[in-house]
């Protein structure tokens, strides 16, 4: 549900940026005002959202344990999947964030002839990993536009990414991978009946938005060609807080920049906040050591409970008759 809506919205955004720059010539709006606003919204929105989460306490320590607990000394316990120490938790979070450990575990259930078969299924893991890492590398690569001197580490990433000598400028591997990964992620929303059923417009929208960003980026680099020097002047101006709008930058770049801005501004208000949320998930970021160390609930309050005295009062006769010791004879 909502795939059409999301698609139309993204098309609308593209059209908006096109009309705004190519027809109305509001270049400085799209080159300066909107990007700055987007970054501000992103940073402040992100912080606000995380602080909002942070204000809710974690009353109980309820990690999902995915391996043997720490118990008797001769039993080997899962230090990462069921950590009992802070270090174990750090490792667990590391694997979760950098390798998508939980998704790696993914399985697929099928019913055939009245029997259930559960088999491993790592496509989503591969797709998600491919998408996120490509996106990260692309993001890092773009820093060359925001720094006067490109640091060597970014140059190295850039040259490894463009190792294959295909076309000129040489193709970036990550451009291909992220394209394939996005198509996969979109494809499963369309073709996997379960995922299709649960999808909302807000699931398709970021996909189309990012596809739009990648598409405009790829068009600029490989096909339409743009004046990169002018663009760097613009981006450097943004970074040095001395914004300028150089001449000769086509609306394709402004569409790209606008979509990126939209992504940034949309981020804190959407499911994309899983980037911050994954760090705050109490089923993953706590040690399974409840019986060893007490976890304090800050809003704990006394509750009315039944006392033994009341109980004995009610059953004293029966207890005495049965020969069960009682407090008050």
């Amino acid at each position: 549900m909502g795939i059409g809506l999301a698609f139309i919205i993204v098309l609308g955004l593209i059209l908006f940026a096109y009309i705004g720059t190519d027809i109305l010539g509001l270049n400085s709006l799209f080159a300066i005002v909107i990007p700055y606003a987007a970054v501000v919204v992103f940073v402040i929105g992100f912080i606000r959202r995380v602080i909002k989460w942070g204000k809710s306490p974690v009353p109980f320590r309820i990690p999902t344990t995915a391996g043997q607990q720490f118990s008797l000394p001769w039993i080997k316990y899962s230090k990462i999947d069921n950590p009992s120490t802070g270090f174990g938790v750090a490792l667990r979070m590391f694997f979760e964030i950098f390798f998508f450990r939980s998704l790696f575990r993914n399985t697929k259930a099928e019913i055939m002839n009245g029997k259930l078969f559960v088999g491993s299924n790592k496509w989503l893991w591969i797709g998600a990993l491919a998408f996120h890492y490509s996106f990260l590398i692309i993001l890092i690569r773009h820093l060359r536009f925001f720094m006067l001197q490109t640091p060597w580490c970014i140059s190295v990433i850039d040259s490894i990414d463009s190792f294959w000598q295909i076309g000129l400028p040489m193709i970036y591997m990550t451009d291909i991978i992220i394209g394939a990964a996005l198509l996969y992620l979109l494809g499963r929303r369309i073709f996997n009946p379960q995922v299709k059923y649960i999808s909302l417009p807000s699931d398709y929208f970021p996909l189309f938005l990012i596809i739009g960003i990648i598409a405009t980026g790829v068009l600029m680099r490989y096909f339409a060609k743009v004046d990169v020097t002018a663009i760097k002047e613009l981006t450097l101006g943004l970074a040095y807080l001395k914004p300028t709008v150089p001449e000769g930058i086509g609306s394709l770049f402004y569409i790209h920049l606008f979509l990126v801005s939209v992504l940034f501004a949309y981020f804190p208000f959407s499911k994309l906040m899983h980037m911050g949320g994954v760090f705050l998930s109490p089923t993953r970021n706590l040690a399974n050591n409840n019986r060893m160390e007490r976890h304090v609930n800050p809003w704990d309050y006394p509750v009315k409970h039944r006392h033994y005295e009341e109980y004995e009062d009610e059953f004293r006769d029966k207890m005495k008759k049965a020969g069960i010791p009682v407090e008050k004879e």
Binding site: W53, N192, I198, L200, D203, M273
Partner: peptide, 15 residues
């Protein structure tokens, strides 16, 4: 409950 708060916000419906 931070659990509840975070879980309400971050699901990406990956399935």
């Amino acid at each position: 409950f931070r659990t509840f708060h975070v879980f309400m916000d971050i699901c990406v419906r990956c399935g």
